[in-house]
């Protein structure tokens, strides 16, 4: 990004990041902890989609992460395509105290790959690390799966806040870095411009005037 002009440095970046994983693994609470430093021990299941925008400082640059949250039940198909559209990052969450949620990670990966680009920056998140006595999935298992699938990995606790910010930051920083060095990708995008909008590739968005400017920026930056 050192190559960017002064004008561009004043611009905002907006990255869409999605939270996915089984019901009640703590997706909404990870978001609540990250965006508002809140935690609801008995938060209701999410219906439809919700999102929060969170400002982050990366290398002295303001980046906005628009984090989307949805229901964990597979059935809500109508939500799916809108949900994944334009996502550049994903937190793939399971509950370390319920093995089933870890076993379902493969299904969520498929889902993610079906509906978005393979380049979506993904982190595997083992949430509820505070439930030490109830642990059913070891850290090593989580790590191994992440390595096998080429994902980042972290264990978090939305309850005691540990690693929550780090989980989101890992994803957002990586997106930022990819963007910073993606001269090649930019050219590729220019070539297949019409398909780009819906394909879920890296999108950089201006604050306010979103997709159009994002696209313009793609072409103009670097």
């Amino acid at each position: 990004m050192a190559l960017c002009t002064e004008e561009e440095q004043s611009e905002d970046y907006l990255f869409k990041v999605v939270l996915i994983g089984d019901s009640a693994v703590g997706k909404s609470n990870l978001l609540a902890r990250f965006a508002r430093d809140e935690f609801y021990p008995n938060s209701k299941s999410t219906i439809g989609v919700e999102f929060q925008t969170q400002k982050m400082d990366i290398n002295g640059k303001e980046v906005k992460a628009q984090i989307w949250d949805t229901a964990g039940q597979e059935r809500f198909r109508a939500v799916t395509s809108a949900y994944y559209r334009g996502a550049v990052g994903a937190l793939l969450v399971y509950d370390i105290s319920r093995r089933q949620t870890f076993d379902d990670i493969g299904r969520w990966l498929n889902e993610l790959h079906t509906h978005s680009d393979m380049n979506v920056v993904t982190i595997l998140v083992g949430n509820k690390s505070d439930l030490k006595d109830l642990r059913e999935v070891s850290t090593a298992e989580g790590k191994a799966l992440a390595e096998a699938q080429g994902l980042f990995f972290i264990e978090t606790s939305a309850l005691d806040s540990s690693n929550v910010a780090a989980a989101f930051q890992t994803v957002v920083i990586e997106i930022y870095n990819i963007l910073s060095r993606k001269v090649i990708q930019t050219q590729e995008l220019k070539k297949e411009d019409p398909a780009w909008m819906g394909s879920g590739k890296t999108i950089v968005l201006h604050d306010g005037n979103q997709e159009v400017d994002g696209q313009a920026k793609k072409g103009g930056c670097c």
Binding site: S23, A24, N42, S43, K44, S45, Q73, Q100
Partner: peptide
Amino acid sequence: QRIIRLDAVRANE
């Protein structure tokens, strides 16, 4: 059965 139980314990008050 599993999801019902998850949702039941987090029903609002």
